Computed example of a mutant assay.
Amino acid sequence: MEDNTVVLERPANYGTAPDYDGLWKALIEELFEEFMQFFAPDLYDEIDFSKGSEFLNKELLKEFINEKKGRVEADQIVKVCLKNGHERWILIHIEVQGKTGKGFAKRMFRYFYRIYDKHNQEVYAIALLTDTEQAIVPNHFHYSFFGTELDYRYNVYSFHNQSIKKLEASSNPFSDAVIAGIYAGKTRHDANRRYAFKRKLMIQILQSTPTQPEHTRTYLSALFHFIDNILQVSNELEEKLEEDIIPYIRKGAEQQMLAGRKSNPWTKVLAEFEEKGLERGLERGIEKGIAKGREEAAKDFAKELIRKDFQNEQIMELTKLDLVEVEKLRESL
C-alpha cells in the first residue's frame, strides 16, 4: 500500500468574521476527494480513493512547521494511497489565504524542504490564493549565490480572473465554493449585492442538484453550510433569503422522498435553515424582553422623579421617555 500525506495549510486569523480559513478547511475535510479532483486533477488520477484518506494529527509536523506568529500554521495532514502500491508518501501542502506577503514564495519553499528533510518524501505543493484582486501570483522561489542556485516551483490556484461561466459549467462542488469565494471578495462592502449573488448561487445549485448523480447530491449540506457562512448577510436579508430558498429545498426533499431515496441530504439542509430561523426568532424575543425591561425600569424611575417634584422636561431628559408617557405616569400617581 502506498502512503501519501496531504498537508493542509491555512494562514492566521484575519481578525474578521466569518472564519474563511476554517470554512475552507472544513469543506476540504468533508469533500477531500472532490477537492483533489478539482484543484489537482493529475494527482487525483494517481490516488486510490477506494482505500480512503486519513486526516492525521497535525502534531506530526509541528516541530518543523511552526510559522504561527499571527500568520500561518500547519493545519492538517492527510494520508492517502496511490494506485501503484509503492511504499512512499506524497506530502501535499495546501495554503488557503488572501494576499500573499513578500516572503510567501520563500515560505512555501521552507515548508517543502522541512517536510522533505524530515521524512525524505516527495512533496506536492499547491497554494489556494483567494484574493480576487491579486493579479501577480508567485509560483516559484529562486535562490542564487555565487554559482549556487536553486529554483523551487509549486502549484497555484488563484481566484483572480477565474471565469464564473466556466465554473458554473462544472459539476464539482468546489467550483461553487470558488464562486462563493469570489463573490465574498467582490461584495465585502455591498450587502445587497452579496445577497443577490448568494441567492442566485444557492438557487442554481438547488435547481441543478436533482439532475446530478446520487453521490453528487450528498454534497448539498456541506456546500450550503460553506456558502451560507462565507457569504454572510444581515438578519433581515437572511430572512428574505430563506423565504426564497426554503420552497426549493422543500420541493427537493419531497421529490427525494417520493423517489424512495434512502439518503436524503435535502432534509438535512431544510432542517438547518429552519433551525437558523428559530434561533433568530429566539434572539429577537430575548432582545424584545430586554427592551421591555428597560422601558419598565425607565417608567419606575420617572415615577420616583415625579414624586420628587421634577419637571416634565427634566424627567424626559433623564429617562428618554416622551412627553405623553411622562404625563400619563404623572396622572396615574
Rank of each mutant, 00 (worst) to 15 (best):
I203M: 03
G185M: 02
I182E: 09
L223F: 07
A180I: 03
S170N: 08
I203C: 04
E168G: 05
R188H: 01
F174S: 06
E214W: 08
K198A: 04
R194C: 12
V233A: 06
A169L: 03
D228F: 09
A180Y: 03
E168V: 15
I203Q: 02
Y183K: 12
A169H: 03
H215G: 07
T187F: 08
H215C: 07
F174K: 10
K200S: 08
H225S: 12
S171H: 15
L231R: 03
F197Q: 05
A169R: 06
G181Q: 11
F197K: 09
K198T: 02
A196Y: 05
A196F: 01
S175K: 00
A169W: 00
I230N: 12
S175F: 00
Q212E: 12
H189P: 02
A191S: 09
R193I: 06
E168C: 08
N192A: 06
Q204L: 03
S171A: 15
K200W: 02
T211W: 01
S221V: 12
Q212V: 04
K186V: 11
Y183H: 13
I182C: 10
M202P: 01
H189A: 13
K186S: 11
L223Q: 11
Q232G: 13
D190L: 01
A191V: 07
K198D: 00
L201T: 06
A184S: 14
T209Q: 02
Q232S: 15
K200H: 10
N229H: 15
E168T: 12
H215P: 14
E214L: 11
A184H: 09
R188A: 09
I179H: 09
A184C: 07
N172D: 07
T209K: 03
D228G: 04
K198Y: 00
